[in-house]
Design a protein around this nucleic acid. Sequence first.
DNA 1: TTGAAAGACTACCACCGGGTAGCGTGCATT
DNA 2: AATGCACGCTACCCGGTGGTAGTCTTTCAA
Lengths: 202, 202
Amino acid sequence: MREEILAYKRERILEEAVKLFYERGFTGTTLDDIAAELGVTKPFIYTHFRSKVELLAALCRPTIELSLAAVQGAAEGPGSPTERLHQAILDFTNVILSRQANIAIYFREEKNLTKEALDDINALRKQFDRVLSLLLQEGVATGEFQVADVDLTSLAIGGMISWAYTWHRPGGRLGLVELSERMAGLTLQMVGAHRIPDAKAA
Amino acid sequence: MREEILAYKRERILEEAVKLFYERGFTGTTLDDIAAELGVTKPFIYTHFRSKVELLAALCRPTIELSLAAVQGAAEGPGSPTERLHQAILDFTNVILSRQANIAIYFREEKNLTKEALDDINALRKQFDRVLSLLLQEGVATGEFQVADVDLTSLAIGGMISWAYTWHRPGGRLGLVELSERMAGLTLQMVGAHRIPDAKAA
DNA sequence: TTGAAAGACTACCACCGGGTAGCGTGCATT
DNA sequence: AATGCACGCTACCCGGTGGTAGTCTTTCAA
């Protein structure tokens, strides 16, 4: 119970930090700003985080983990490579858009992370690319996909989706589900997958 | 002649600023750092730029202009929509990769620009998307492309290519021309363009 | 040879912001 | 009621950095 309250406070700090870092940038936001927004003072934050950059790492890493988990989960799931790629993009796009601020902060403020945190996250990203490449490779093997260079195509797909953090505005023309679905469609078309029956589309 | 020397000094300052901002980030780089790297002192920089953020704007804007010019030039050029899109991606990719550091700095440090500079650049980016959308629309009209949503596809393409600033390493597996060509290939496949004869490939 | 102006440097300031030491306060337990 | 402890706050420090004032040097024209 005491533990839960502690965790809740941590969460609230992160929440507000994400908001402000997103709007004003990492160096453009002071710890006093965050504290003020929370109705507390700076030392309060220091009882939960050792430093400002630790705060940054704490709001970046889990989001990258989620991205990896999305693609990995779908890749290891059931179905043909086409179906699994479809699902992977759906889930990945959802992570990117639902954690848009965290993603933006990570890519913008990468340089402010400690070397350790950066290496740590980079390992996750490497794995992300590997998983995606392997899935593409599978599809090539079954003849479902036509791609000349699976590694490059992984990067291209990853970029195309990740980039959505740049332009997506919640409440825009397309909702989260439509957007995910269309991105998946573009992806499948890019890898030369034939349109699948897809009997159970949402 | 005096003018040319002035312009050269400006150029050298920008060059070194790009290098350091790229490696250490905008706030992570001091004006003293830049001056030291040039073998001069801080006030020297101030005779050429009014402030640190003006320096930032001066190294971002021209690169975005180049990106727009690349796509616009190809879009207005001769040939079928397929050929023009092909050329547009080639040229755009070249800008992104040859100005990799500038692009990275722009996306990372956007928040540090003044509102005026930001609005200015955003107008260019809007135009970029519009030009690309129109080109796709043309291809759809001729039946060369199969895309359901030209605006979304423009964003997807723009993202896929821009993202290359993230992972491209000069001297990597693929050279600049191969990379551009493959990105163009992926793009055409994504828009459902049929492979073109392409008699005069480099 | 001299004077003046351009251009760059030395030296400095003022402020800001991350981080910390130590104090008060209220709640829970006895 | 007394006691102690968890918790958050006030107040402060100090280093770094953008930006500037005023001086020195070098060059060029008269």
